[in-house]
Design a binder for these strands. Structure first.
Lengths: 166, 166
DNA sequence: CAAAATATGTCAATATAGCTGACATAAACT
DNA sequence: AGTTTATGTCAGCTATATTGACATATTTTG
């Protein structure tokens, strides 16, 4: 991509050794493991799993999202989504409303209960991210943002940006 | 261009808004998803999964590790490890050597083939981490390290540090 | 030395979260 | 009217994890 042509704009500066990079790879594994542990514990109380979490989250963040759009964000099959979505609807966390303009569409919304669950799932992760940023220096937020974008597949960055910037 | 995807700049640090933190949470999800995609594809060629990856990785990084130690690092049950380990041994990627001092122990080593696989699994992740660091500024490596430590459960940080600093 | 603890392995049953393929229905578009 | 789109559903498969029970070899301890 054209973005990689800019290698000469930044001087190589301080080169990271292989050992440092491997340490970062392992840290990413442990960090992600713990990052997901709080929601996992809460979800278990409801008999839910990570799949439910992702649906609650992205429906919560994109009120009125269609099933197809949700599948595109989650990159899973509709058969995989079906079970999870049915459980969330049956238990009153998610609501399906027939589309107004296009009545084939089932637009997804969180119920009040769903919003409450969403908040409870996010709270510990927000605290954890804030703690990490405090740990790395108060100005490390934008660096974290850049780092994470850089880890995303280059060809997906634009889509991801559209998704995450509400 | 793609490299400009993240240029919706955040307020000059110190106080991150909730929206910024939520964005980081979502980015962490997408970043980790893509971070694991290259190894996943390679593993699939061998009929292996992430479980095999983790075993190859931690055995490769801790030559002579015992089964119990490996279980402690991975935090899975021995029954879960058994199948994966058996497959890796049968197909010649991992070797079990009876402990010298304690002959109950099975000390785990990578074979030459195992080391080759380990390198092939790490290569794309190392490239991705280096790219992310370049994307976030050449001096962002140490910040990334601090951020990731900060995401780990506080009570586990010492153990994680022991594991990742070879 | 006998007994207990440890390190590992194995069998069986279960859960979850994903997958592919095939087919069905309603609504919209051409 | 016929085709495409959006969604749902049935059936069967895989991978990865779990718990519980039990087996074996070896080391440690009383």
């Amino acid at each position: 991509m054209a973005s990689d042509a800019a290698h000469q704009t930044m001087p190589p500066a301080q080169q990271l050794g292989d050992d440092d990079v491997v340490e970062l790879i392992e840290l990413l594994y442990f960090a992600y493991r713990d990052f997901t542990s709080d929601p996992d514990a809460l979800l278990a109380e409801f008999g839910f799993g990570r799949a439910h979490h992702r649906v609650v989250h992205f429906v919560g963040r994109n009120t009125g999202i269609s099933v197809a759009e949700l599948l595109d964000v989650l990159k899973i099959t509709k058969q995989s989504l079906a079970r999870v979505l049915r459980e969330l609807v049956e238990r009153g966390f998610v609501e399906q409303r027939t589309g107004d303009a296009d009545r084939r569409k089932r637009l997804l919304h969180l119920t009040d209960e769903g919003r409450k669950l969403h908040q409870r799932l996010m709270a510990p992760q927000m605290a954890r991210v804030r703690e990490a940023i405090a740990h790395a220096g108060a100005d490390s937020g934008p660096v974290m943002q850049q780092l994470l974008y850089g880890l995303v597949n280059a060809q997906d960055r634009d889509q991801v940006e559209r998704i995450v910037t509400s």
